[in-house]
Amino acid sequence: MDIAGSIALVTGANRGIGRHFAAQLLERGAKKVYATARRPELVDLPGAQVLRLDITDPASVRAAAEAAQDVTLLVNNAGIATGTNLVTGDLDGIRREMDTHFYGTLHMVRAFAPILAAGGGGAIINVLSALSWFSHDGANAYAAAKAAEWSLTNGVRLELAGQGTLVTGLHLGAADTDLMADYDGDKIDPAEVVRAGLDGVERGAFEVLADEWSAHIKASLADDPSRFYTQAHPAA
């Protein structure tokens, strides 16, 4: 689909990758951009139409869908990182990860699929992660939730193909955002992530790997997992 002339809705648009999505959509000629956040007063983006939206609240999702009946491009970006493990971690934190990344994304897709169909099909971008494909001690709840969201992305792509909706999964490693402020490794510029994602939608890509780390992890899935995990975690 063409970004120019599209009508987009971006979740988690108050900062980080979401704000870059909303800004670049406007720069690339989107007709309208709904910039959404749980706290809409934090959205600072001239030219965007601001909406309150909590993707973990079905009533909030329904209200956003009622207010944005003209959307042709849905960007599911909103996310959290609780730093929770699975065996000893707080169950509420694990549920928050799943409620946000899996169920929150699913709420959005279910609410906006009929709107996209009415507009001719349109497209959905789900912002995923290299952690969709591997686990890391200290972030295992996040990895499990992102793996579930990756599977969701592949599933709804099949279900929405008949109405002409493109579903693109955007994977990245660490981006230089507030969410990754405590991470000491290499980080990709979030603007590059967004450019890769929007370019991918315009060429009809099912999946976009925004950085070398994501490409490396995806390629490792064809190998014996012991090789990857003994390199990444020698004690494994």
Rank of each mutant, 00 (worst) to 15 (best):
A37Q: 08
A37Y: 09
A37F: 06
R38F: 02
R38Q: 06
R39E: 11
R39F: 10
R39C: 06
R39T: 10
R39N: 14
P40Q: 12
P40H: 13
E41D: 13
E41A: 14
L42P: 04
D44S: 13
D44M: 03
D44I: 00
L45P: 10
L45G: 10
L45N: 10
L45A: 13
P46K: 12
P46N: 14
A48C: 08
A48K: 10
A48L: 06
Q49L: 12
V50N: 11
V50H: 08
L51C: 07
L51R: 13
L51V: 01
L51E: 01
R52N: 06
R52M: 10
R52W: 08
L53M: 11
L53G: 09
L53W: 05
D54Q: 05
D54H: 03
I55N: 07
I55H: 04
I55C: 09
I55D: 02
T56R: 15
D57L: 07
D57V: 01
D57K: 06
P58D: 15
P58S: 13
P58K: 11
P58Y: 13
A59V: 15
S60G: 06
S60I: 06
V61E: 11
V61Q: 09
V61F: 04
R62H: 14
R62V: 13
A63W: 06
A63S: 11
A64F: 05
A64P: 10
A64T: 08
A64H: 07
A64S: 11
A65C: 03
A65Q: 03
A65L: 02
E66L: 10
E66K: 02
E66S: 09
E66H: 07
A67I: 07
A67R: 04
A68M: 04
A68R: 01
Q69T: 07
Q69M: 04
Q69H: 04
D70G: 06
V71M: 07
T72M: 14
T72E: 12
L73Q: 07
L74I: 02
L74G: 02
L74D: 10
L74P: 01
V75S: 01
V75R: 01
V75Q: 00
N76E: 02
N77M: 05
G79W: 00
G79E: 01
T82D: 03
G83I: 04
T84H: 03
T84K: 05
T84W: 02
N85V: 11
N85S: 13
N85H: 05
L86R: 01
L86V: 14
V87N: 15
V87M: 15
V87C: 12
T88L: 03
T88R: 08
T88V: 07
D92L: 09
D92P: 02
G93A: 05
G93S: 03
G93I: 08
I94P: 08
I94L: 15
R95H: 15
R95K: 15
R96Y: 11
E97P: 06
E97R: 05
